[in-house]
Design a protein around this nucleic acid. Structure first.
Lengths: 341, 341
DNA sequence: TTCAGAATTGGGAGCGCTCCCAAAAATTAT
DNA sequence: ATAATTTTTGGGAGCGCTCCCAATTCTGAA
């Protein structure tokens, strides 16, 4: 039982509180003899220092917060979030930090949670998953509160903020280039919401690729999805009359919904409509489609976010750090690459 | 900025530290005049009491831990976990607790995390998602450490532990009864791993329903899945030669994989093979199958777990509390109910 | 008007650590 | 051998709160 204190251990080991503290924290300048004696006592008492006392005295909590704002519903429909959470949780564990999770859905949630995430004494720093318009408020408040902060995803404003992201424009561009290279010309897209940076950026990459190949932009080939399976399904139904021969979907889960719509319409993938998705989550390979998709390193993304945040905590928040991670096109079945060549 | 302390606020409001503390904690016995004066100062300084100091002094952290052991990989393949997490996170927020998340995959993870979850001063209590053999070790250690603890899912041993669960046997039983009632006789099952309580219990319910209707048990109609889509797919492939006319799958996600296998084999759902799943996650209704399934109240389950844990924290861990939540069969398309009658 | 009793307020002690500085012990140089 | 360093050890102060008890102020009944 850990109702023991440093003082108890000190008494049992016949040393002082300070020495035990040094041993516990792995500090030098303790003789081996004493260190081992203390270590023994700790070992067989099962002592663990009190976290609150340590935090109070050291002004460090060794706890990081993960804030998932306005994405509470997505958290369950899009496997992206669980994967990101996994990476972050793993990294926290690796670096001996504790992870506090905050799902904030409404403005009231935000107000209720803000005091807890902004206050020192609970969290050393915060990772905010962002990319949505509505997330900017909490980011601004966190910046004002001077909290060490890493945004996962490019924020809308606040370029004085550290963030880590992928190059969505470039990634989408290369996905669509791939389709063009395979000979498709009526290429549609199911974009993310225009209220999100990823929605905007991935669509921009799509447009850029078309423009570069002088393929005229056809508005009827663009539908906005919401990063859900059913959203992809609905978007595809609105696209079908325009007769696309290929579709770039801004997420795997939307691609899956879209493919379902295509098949229900009696068409084949990729023979009638080819697909490229985005994310490369396990479901892309598992599903009855072999989805060609843009791989983004979700787990590593989370790990990197933690690393940057710890850097901020330990070395100060200025200047802001910006990390762009690499993506890669993974060619599987749905783009029809094997048919065309 | 919250580098302010109680003392600062006290000075500004012309009262004592104790009075500010009373106001902050909503205690009675403060005159309205003084209370409002203090409240004003707090308001326009943006003061928040230091969490670590409060924890140290009160021996309560207002933080709960959620431990997802041996399920790190499931966390992403089975949407059940994100949903559970959502319920727990929501409830924590509602009751003004902070949620700390621990994903433990390996034995090393467990050892690394254990000191943090068991030690007072960080967590007031812990929720452990369980049901797997491998989870018992950490549960035992937590019990020994005298930590307020709620197990989500029936644990294997430790009936001196509080848990909350659904009646898996009964739920599976009624699902299979439904199939029998529709006239199916070669009913197979894709069970969960026998290393999990849900795997065991849901299979038991299946067997019970068969026995009650004097349908002989045919071993070739039972396949063990692993709660993944691909596991369900593989299990179904091994079931197909036995010619089932209906299948009870122990989770929705496995049912989806199984349905994919059936369709790839050129058979129809529910005409050739009917299905009942388990969970009733959104994907059951969204998917291109309209999955008949056992609804379990995942989010409420999480909320209940938090409520029980808070009860434990505030009123002592003895006697252990046991809560069994209701399930309900949701009839959609895949069981063929509409065809048969 | 006076005083018991209730309501309010203030301050000390303490929660269990870290950090700093001074004291003690061990080491090396003279 | 002694003096000058260096290494190790101990203890005080303090982190910012809560909790308890005593001091003060306010009631209203005698």
């Amino acid at each position: 039982m850990s109702d023991l204190t440093l003082e108890d251990i000190a008494r049992q080991a016949g040393v002082s509180r300070s020495t035990v503290s040094r041993v516990v924290n792995g500090q030098p300048n303790v003789s081996d003899k004493v260190r081992n004696r203390v270590l023994d006592v700790i070992q067989n008492t099962g002592f663990h220092p009190n976290a609150a006392a340590r935090t109070l005295a050291s002004q460090r909590s060794w706890t990081l917060g993960l804030l998932l704002p306005h994405s509470v519903s997505f958290f369950f429909t899009d496997p992206y979030y669980p994967h990101l959470t996994k990476g972050i949780a793993q990294a926290c564990n690796q670096y001996d930090y504790t992870l506090a999770l905050f799902l904030v859905g409404t403005k009231e949630d935000e107000d209720k949670i803000f005091p807890r995430v902004s206050r020192k004494g609970l969290l050393d720093g915060v990772i905010v998953q962002s990319g949505h318009h509505g997330d900017q408020s909490i980011i601004g408040r966190l910046v004002d509160a001077n909290m060490p902060l890493v945004v996962a995803g490019r924020p809308f404003r606040f370029d004085n903020v550290s963030y880590i992201d992928i190059d969505n424009i470039q990634a989408a561009y290369s996905a669509v280039r791939h389709l063009i290279g395979l000979g498709y010309r009526r290429i549609g897209t199911i974009s993310g919401p225009v209220s999100s940076t990823v929605g905007i950026d991935r669509k921009e990459g799509y447009l850029k690729a078309l423009a570069e190949s002088s393929i005229p932009f056809d508005e009827s080939l663009v539908a906005e999805g919401d990063f859900t399976e059913s959203g992809g399904y609905a978007a595809m139904q609105s696209l079908l009359p325009a007769g696309p021969d290929a579709v770039f979907a801004a997420s795997d889960i939307m691609a899956l919904g879209a493919i379902r719509a295509v098949r229900e319409a009696g068409l084949r993938v990729p023979e009638d409509v080819a697909f490229v998705g985005f994310d490369d989550l396990p479901l892309a390979a598992l599903s009855n489609v072999q989805l060609t998709t843009v791989h983004q390193p979700v787990v590593q993304f989370g790990i990197k976010a933690v690393e940057v945040l710890i850097d901020l905590v330990e070395n100060g928040i200025a200047p802001p750090r910006h990390v762009i991670m690499d993506t890669e096109l993974v060619v599987r079945g749905t783009c029809g690459a094997s048919l065309r060549r």
